[in-house]
Amino acid sequence: MNILVCVKAVPDMESHFTLQSDSLHIEDSNLVYKMNSFDECAVEEALKMKEKNGGEVVIVSLGDDKTVQVMRKAFAMGADRGVFLNNASFKDTDALTVAGLLHKAVSDFKPDLILTGIQAEDDIQAQVGPALAELFGVPHASVVVSVVLSEDAKKIKVKRELEGGTLEVVEMSLPCLLTIQTGINIPRYPSLPGIMKAKKKEIKEIKLSESDLGSSKVERVTLLEPQPEGKVEILQGDAKSVATQLISKLKERKVFN
């Protein structure tokens, strides 16, 4: 069973984001990047299947230099090798272009299963997975929270999450693509031997030129800070003083009655 997992390096969302002067990009020289949390669950799910059914887990990622450490993390968890599409302006490409580039880069590999996270924490689009399924010509299911492979490894039964907590049980034949939701598993920490081995695993780097990126159909015109919906009253002081103020205010508002 050969599995392709798409991963993305994203900044830690607890960072303070500042805008570059072009108002199109964030200042990212001092940000800490990590693996998109949905992708981490996708890697874990792939490794669990590999442990059961054998085969190879291949990581593919489009990004800049920050991507390499994220791919190495997937290796340290247990993935076998990677394909790295390197271009520093990848952030300006729309999701469908990204799906096209990923597809082209791995079109010689015939995976039985393709996994992506539902969405990236930074762009929050949830497009690449289903678009990639269309390009590969395989069926897909999104927001997957459980996966069961049939005995003969030809079919897969998944639960996908609908709004409000209802689950949809869906069956399809392999090869197929799943977009993974958090909660499907608790991703493992890389082991020390895993980290040692990761250094030797192969990353095939493909340097993309600007023309490879082509022209995107969705184009950012500006990036800005959100305007808060209401007016929040920030309570000032140390913990004790803040607590006294807050409880008094809540009592005044009669929330406890």
Binding site: P11, M13, F17, L19, I26, E121, D122, D123, I124, V218, E219, R220, V221, T222, L223, L224, E225, P226
Partner: peptide, 11 residues
């Protein structure tokens, strides 16, 4: 975008 910390406008 960015987990709700920023807003983008697109064409």
């Amino acid at each position: 975008v960015y987990n709700g910390k920023l807003v983008e406008k697109v064409r």
